[in-house]
């Protein structure tokens, strides 16, 4: 009830504001520029500044969102078999180097050979992929250069 009364009081002024906006939209470019010159109005500069601030804010928000997303992302559907064997082996070695405990267990479970076969490498990467522990990267990116 109180709010309705308040809105009712505001409505005439809001209608006036709307009429002012309509007039601004109907004015010609030339009229607006003449008015600005007459009034020494720096509105164009203010508007451009607001745009630049908004652009910076959006760019920073996107950057932060991308960083958050990159931290949480994992390989889901990438086709491990599309990697060339050397790259796949690099990925696996990198994972093993950063997870020594896991590496020990895996080595223990593998057949005793000097070197893992390509099939072993692909199989292990797929297993890691299924468990969601491989970091996201594109297939043609190759080993992480960090």
């Amino acid at each position: 009830m109180t709010r309705n009364k308040d809105s009712h009081q505001q409505a005439p002024l809001e209608r006036l504001i709307e009429a002012l906006v309509e007039d601004i939209l109907a004015a010609s470019d030339e009229d607006l520029i003449n008015e600005a010159q007459t009034d020494d109005d720096n509105g164009a500069t203010v508007a451009r500044r607001a745009f630049e601030r908004a652009s910076r804010t959006i760019a920073l928000r996107r950057l932060a969102a991308n960083r958050r997303a990159a931290r949480g992302r994992r390989v889901v559907g990438a086709n491990i078999r599309a990697l060339d064997p050397k790259t796949a082996r690099g990925w696996l070695e990198e994972y093993m180097a950063s997870h020594p405990d896991a590496a020990r267990k895996v080595r223990g479970a593998l057949p005793q050979r000097d070197r893992l076969s390509d099939e072993d490498v692909y199989g292990m990467l797929e297993a890691l992929q299924k468990r969601g522990v491989l970091k996201q990267r594109t297939i043609d990116q190759g080993p992480d250069q960090r």
Binding site: I24, I33, A44, A50, A54, I58
Partner: peptide
């Protein structure tokens, strides 16, 4: 003239309100 029109409209919309034209413009741009 486009920038001016935007600013004038923002200023009109801020009349009888408690926010300022530049904030309104920035929010709309965002």
């Amino acid at each position: 003239a486009g920038w001016l029109r935007l600013h004038k409209a923002a200023r009109a919309l801020c009349r009888n309100a408690h926010f300022d034209a530049e904030d309104l413009l920035q929010e709309a741009f965002e």
